[in-house]
């Protein structure tokens, strides 16, 4: 069958209106970032990323970015309608990245952020970062030492801060404890001990550091897999772990709970 000669595309002069791709990319990026920040706010996932004190910053940034996106988009539309071509009002700037790359990277991050759901850190991170029951040298100032709180109302971080101020474990013997946290199996502890732990934030997830208290079980810790969230009720006692006398919770009740909406403590 004789092949039909392929139709040559008629060489057309590009008469289509000039589209300033960089501006389009800018508008898209601004919108995507605004939507992403607002999405984290509305779905409550911001809890996983930030300290609550700073959430208003991220929320207002979302609103401002959307606003900027609208302004820039409106500007772009009027310019396209007027066909006035490109506006070269740029200030003198030199940068490491070509501008289109920057936009593309930013847009990519925002799209990724919209798809991906951030997850709170888990036991392996805690082990990697090193759990302390004393706040390390860099975190020496107890910010909120609640002296009068009843022992059973103390959270894990309250306990650790209290211990930091007065480290002798015997002072707390038989005080009642009621804490929630996730399970860690420290590798060099005997099988009947686990660590009940929480991450503490001062600013954002980047500085999350774990704190924890040992829990002495009657059986094997394998009943409670790592990263399970537990509510531990019991009394305090003193045991020697890691060749060091430590405050230990001797539980009377262990209840499995679902991961709280706000997994960190502050």
């Amino acid at each position: 069958m004789p092949r039909k000669p392929r139709k040559q595309p008629i060489p057309q002069k590009p008469r289509s209106p000039f589209i300033p791709w960089r501006d389009v990319l800018d508008v898209l990026t601004l919108f995507a970032w605004g939507v992403m920040l607002l999405k984290y706010w509305l779905t409550g996932k911001l809890n996983v990323l930030l300290h609550p004190d700073y959430m208003w910053l991220s929320n207002s940034a979302g609103v401002v970015l959307l606003l900027l996106g609208f302004l820039k988009g409106w500007q772009l539309l009027t310019r396209l309608r007027r066909q006035s071509g490109r506006d070269l009002s740029s200030q003198t700037h030199t940068t490491l990245l070509p501008p289109n790359w920057s936009s593309a990277i930013l847009l990519g991050v925002a799209v990724f952020g919209l798809i991906y759901t951030p997850k709170a850190f888990a036991s392996d991170t805690a082990l990697q970062r090193g759990i302390t029951d004393t706040l390390t040298a860099t975190r020496s100032q107890p910010q909120r030492f609640v002296r009068n709180a009843a022992p059973e109302e103390r959270t894990i971080i309250d306990w650790v801060r209290t211990l930091n101020v007065y480290p002798e474990p015997d002072a707390y013997t038989a005080q009642r404890a009621n804490v929630t946290g996730f399970v860690i199996h420290p590798p060099d502890w005997p099988d009947n001990y686990l660590m009940i732990s929480r991450f503490v934030l001062t600013c954002c997830a980047a500085d999350a550091y774990p704190v924890g208290l040992p829990v002495k079980l009657s059986g094997s810790r394998s009943t409670y897999a790592p990263d399970t969230w537990l509510e531990v009720e019991g009394a305090m006692g003193t045991e020697t772990l890691d060749e060091r006398r430590q405050l230990v919770i001797e539980p009377t009740a262990l209840k499995q709970i679902s991961e709280p909406k706000n997994p960190y403590e502050y």
Binding site: L57, G113, Y116, F121
Partner: peptide, 18 residues
Amino acid sequence: NAFTLFLSLMVEAMPFLL
């Protein structure tokens, strides 16, 4: 963890950049 860390840095830094 890396993604969470990354997003947390971005979300915290973006308002200040703005």
